[in-house]
Amino acid sequence: MKVGRIITYTFLILITMPIILLYVLLFLQSISTRLDGIIPRGFTLSNWEFLSTGDIIIPGTTFSYYPNLYLVLGNTFLLAILIALLEVVFSSLAGYALSRYRFRGRSKLLTLTIILHAFPGITLLIALFYVLNALKLYNTLTGVIIVKVALDLPLGIWIMKGFFDSVPWDIEMSALVDGTTRLGAWWRVIMPNVRNGLMAVLIFGFLSGWSEFIYVLTFIASQDYWTLSMLVYALTTGEYSYINPGVTATVAIIYMIPVVIFFLFAQKYLLRIQIAAKGV
C-alpha cells in the first residue's frame, strides 16, 4: 500500500514537473540577467522599466516599433469583456428558450447546436474572412468579437440549457401563476438560480477572448488594434528579434495576471464542468 502511494506521488510529481518548471522559467526570465536552466545568474529589474511608459524600444533605435503596451492591454480587455458579456446574454436567452419553450423545430435546433458545438470553427477562417470583409468588419475589434461570440455560442447555449434544466419548473410556474410575464419570470426567478452557469459562461468567454490569437492574427491589420497575443507573438519571432527575452517575459507575465486570478478563484468551477471546453 505504502509503495503504491509512493509510486503514485512520484509519477504525479515527475509528469507535472515540466508545467511547473515552464512557469517558473517565465518568472525568472523576467528578473534575471541570464539563466542557466532555472538558476538565475544576476538579478535585474530593468526588464520592468518599460512599464513606466509602455513603449518597447529596440536598443539602438528611435521608433517604438511595437504599439504601446497599455493600448494593447486596453484592447485585450475590451475584446475579452465584450465577448464574455455578449456570450452570457445571448446564451442565457437562447438556453432558456431551449430549456423551457416547446416550439416547432426545437429538437432540430438542439441537434444543430450540438453539431456546431463539436464543429471546429477554425476551419472556416477563409469564409469568415470573406464575410467580415463583405460586412466591412475586417480590421476591427468588432469583427473579431462577433466571430468569437458566434463560434463560442453553441457551447454557451449548452451550458446554460443544462443549468436551466436543473431549475425546478414549479418555481417558475408559481411566478407565472402570480401574473409575472415570461420575460419577468426569466429575469427575476430563473436567472438568480443559474448564477453558477452564468459565471461559467462568463469565465469561458473572458478567457477565450483574452487568449484569442488566430482570429486577431488573421482579421486585424492595424497595430492599433493588436491584442496581447499579437504583441507576445511579435516579440517572440522575427528577423530582427533583438528584444531582450526578459522584456518579452515581462509582457507575458502581465498577460498571465488575469488568467492566474481567474485560475485561483475559478478552477473549482472549471474542474466541475461536465461538458468541458473544446479545444485541442
Binding site: 487568449s211 490569437f213 517572440t236 507575458a252 498571465m256 488568467v259 485560475f263 472549471l270 471546453a277
Partner: peptide, 8 residues
C-alpha cells in the same frame, strides 16, 4: 496550460 494564452 489550457487557460494560458497560446502565444505565451
Amino acid at each position: 496550460p489550457r487557460i494560458t494564452p497560446s502565444t505565451v
